[in-house]
């Protein structure tokens, strides 16, 4: 509250009598509570800072500690190595437990990528088309049913989806496509996609709804059909939002742990065959942190993976949030 500027007072007027003791006490309380509330916002900032700090702190030895460097360095993590034999060379191996620990991160990155790609390829068309149907073609009643139902998907804990993929989906897929491995990137990817559909759907639906009525009316008045209107007028307008939804879905999929932990087979294989098991960044951390010796190089590498994961998801979320913000500004600003 800014205090208003005061004029020069004439000598005759004096200030209002102030402050009975109870008012003083109330003011003191008010001040204390205000400070307390400000403190809570500092706590929120502190929390995220602490997360950066402590995860980073345990990851730092990977970059700085000579003992850790005896076992693993940045270059051994990211660059091709000479594992395997000359006849069957293996440039990238993730095998941190064993006589000669190997810490190639590439199989893990590739694993995350494969699972996420499948998830997005699976989820995006479904979510987008469903959103288009909900906003452009569905009668009012249906709309009020479809939205909550799809949002129910969002309420399913990821461990349940992982369970379903592990027990049911894997068998179905294996029978359907005659796959060699039961647990693989496709299996995990589809389950991941299920988890991601609600996010993409909700954002796309928002983006489509935000397109002004007038665009649709103009198109229909020119003789275009509802579908042509949706495809050629509404969707292009909503593209930034759709893009944002995809990016945010990507971010969510990369960071997801339980589904891939249970459904992907957890084998660090470096190949582009999607029907093979994969091991993602997130699953590696989850699978190995329980066994690791506190303070060992492996321990620090796992935290380093966490930082990596954090940075990747953060990047995706950041791009996505900016896109959403820009979209909102564009559509609430001018009716272009």
């Amino acid at each position: 509250m800014g205090a208003p500027l005061l004029s020069a007072m004439s000598a005759n007027t004096t200030a209002l009598p102030t402050v009975e003791t109870s008012v003083a006490r109330r003011r003191a309380w008010d001040w204390a509570i205000e400070k307390f509330i400000y403190l809570s916002s500092l706590v929120a900032i502190a929390i995220i800072v602490l997360i950066f700090l402590f995860v980073g702190r345990e990851a730092l030895p990977v970059l700085t500690s000579p003992q850790v460097h005896e076992e693993v360095t940045l270059s051994t993590m990211f660059l091709p190595q000479n594992y395997g034999t000359p006849e069957a060379p293996l440039p990238y191996v993730w095998q941190p437990v064993g006589l000669h620990p190997k810490y190639s991160v590439m199989p893990l990155l590739l694993g995350s990528l494969k699972a996420t790609l499948i998830a997005m390829l699976f989820a995006t068309p479904l979510a987008l088309l469903a959103a288009i149907y909900t906003t452009e073609f569905a009668p009012r009643r249906m709309r009020e049913v479809i939205k909550p139902v799809i949002e129910m998907l969002a309420g399913i804990p990821s461990v349940v989806l992982g369970f379903f993929a592990l027990i049911v989906l894997a068998t179905v897929l294996q029978d359907l496509f005659d796959l060699e491995y039961r647990l693989n990137a496709i299996n995990a990817g589809i389950a991941l996609g299920l988890a991601v559909i609600p996010i993409v759907y909700t954002i796309c639906e928002d983006a489509l709804t935000a397109v002004p009525r007038s665009y649709r009316n103009a198109s229909l008045a020119l003789g275009a059909s509802p579908w042509q209107t949706a495809w050629k007028v509404v969707l292009p307008s909503a593209l930034p939002g759709v893009f944002a939804g995809i990016v945010l879905g990507f971010g969510r999929a990369v960071g997801e742990t339980m589904i891939v932990l249970m459904a992907s087979g957890n084998a660090a294989i470096t190949s582009w065959n999607f029907a093979e098991p994969v091991r993602t960044l997130s699953a590696s951390i989850a699978a190995e942190l329980g066994e690791v010796v506190f303070g060992s190089p492996h321990y620090h590498v796992l935290f380093f993976l966490g930082v990596l994961l954090f940075v990747i998801t953060f990047a995706f979320n950041w791009v996505g949030t900016i896109a959403v913000a820009r979209l909102r500004k564009r559509l609430t600003g001018a009716d272009r």
Binding site: I45, I48, I285
Partner: peptide
């Protein structure tokens, strides 16, 4: 600044992968 930083903090918190929370829980 306090407002913008707190906002950023909460937004970022929402985007942290769940396993990283596990690391945080363990490490911190």
């Amino acid at each position: 600044r306090l407002y913008r930083w707190t906002r950023a903090a909460v937004d970022n918190l929402a985007g942290v992968p769940s396993i990283v929370f596990g690391l945080f829980g363990l490490g911190f």
